[in-house]
Design a binder for these strands. Structure first.
Lengths: 254, 254
DNA sequence: TAAATAGTGTCTATAAGACATTATCTC
DNA sequence: GAGATAATGTCTTATAGACACTATTTA
């Protein structure tokens, strides 16, 4: 007979106060899943959305490319429970990419927990997406377990190119980013600290996959200045022709 | 020394093909978290948004109200991995509420996995939110482990009234529902199969917490008929005065 | 007929989209 | 001056919000 968590829990003797209960509490002997974090790390290079993948150097899917990530570190006792899932995501991101702490936007995407998504054992993955400024993207270096990393074009990736269910996770992340870019400030995570209107427009175009009218985009942009979301920065960006005004994102006071 | 999943994994001998690897694979002996699903079940009754809570009959938080939910059932081996997380959510929902399968809208909210959110042991919870039509809400009966359930008003709940981190989860769900109601069709999950414009407006008002101009709401509503999202149903809803036309939601062909 | 609620119309402000035009810089 | 891109302006259409008004039913 297979034991499940709910049953095990009821074997514990009730009664007494909560402190006493916890003192004597012994977790049941039922199968637990491993919990992992998987990272959909995106940047923009050469007007192209790129995804960071790492090559697996062990079975299963040996040699295949996969999302960076790793297992949640769980402590050995009820009073030492280990790291939080957000912390695990942050840790894996910095371990495996070498990017400096706090330089990357990171947000939870959701949990992926179908059975058999990992052929070794039951694994529930909590997926995150990360946005890396193009200025930082070239600094990425394999670290931790990882031996090879690469930035892979999102548009011409193979339909089922990644290990595990990572293609599904990537699709879900792209949907989320495309959805959020119009309603939040995530576009500013994909440009350098100072940027021109055209650079920001390019980010929107690349993420959405459709061209945007420069004049109309400018109007939206100028409204953001009125709303004090953006401010002019000093200097101009030199190009082949007329130099462009440079702006900076003002972190909202919220 | 504390073992972590990543370390254990590397102890496995590499080489050979993947099938052979999996044959001989033995998962490492590292601590794993329990994975649970928690449900934020919402309905509308008397123009008031209500949350379904269950009373805990065991420590910890004995006697306190908490979200319905339970542990993910994980199989004993790599070839019998147990149920998926979405299935677990569905199962717990129907077990603990007695509501008929497939009658309730259910969507994943995200994972909550801070350490010490459960004092017994490390638990990572995957939260879901569910929307129950007001016609079904009175049918809810405690089932499974649960002895007492209640529909609790969302607006006059205590700030820290629930067990564990369930208040945080509820806040997150409410934010999500308020956000999604303008961009999706979830409002139709909170009305009976046929409904009047005023009923649907009441749902929006209750969820958003602000009054909405009836005339303006009507315009949005009529656009949905043009877009074939809604259709007229037969009959009229009788009220104290002029009866109102009744409509029906047409599931989009997507 | 009065009360109540369903249903309609109007006016304004705001934003998005299509597109033409001007300005300013490099070479 | 030519070429290129930045920057601006115009016109149309769609939508949201405030609010006045009409229609239809019950009691």
């Amino acid at each position: 007979m297979i034991r499940y968590a709910g049953m095990a829990e009821r074997r514990v003797t009730p009664g007494g106060d909560e402190a006493a209960f916890l003192e004597t509490y012994r977790p049941g002997d039922f199968p637990r899943p491993s919990v992992a974090v998987d990272l959909v790390v995106l940047t923009i290079e050469d007007c192209d959305l790129r995804l960071l993948t790492v090559q697996r150097n062990e079975h299963p899917f040996k040699g295949k490319w996969a999302l960076p990530g790793g297992f949640l570190r769980v402590g050995p006792s009820r009073t030492a429970q280990g790291e939080g899932i957000d912390d695990a995501a942050k840790r894996e991101l910095h371990e495996e990419t070498g990017l400096p702490e706090g330089s990357v936007f990171l947000e939870q995407l959701g949990a992926f927990g179908a059975p058999n998504r990992d052929p070794r054992m039951r694994v529930v993955s909590v997926a995150y997406f990360a946005l890396v400024r193009p200025t930082l993207a070239p600094l990425v270096r394999p670290g931790g377990d990882v031996r090879k990393v690469r930035w892979q074009s999102v548009s011409d990736r193979e339909p089922a190119g990644l290990a595990f269910d990572h293609d599904t996770i990537v699709s879900s992340a792209l949907r989320r980013v495309r959805d959020e870019i119009d309603r939040s400030h995530i576009a500013f995570e994909l440009v350098p600290d100072t940027f021109t209107i055209q650079q920001l427009r390019a980010v929107h175009e690349v993420v959405k996959g459709t061209p945007i009218d420069p004049g109309n985009f400018r109007k939206r942009f100028l409204r953001m200045i009125d709303d004090e979301i953006l401010e002019q920065a000093r200097g101009k960006r030199l190009t082949a022709s007329k130099p462009a005004q440079v702006y900076r994102f003002r972190a909202p006071p919220t």
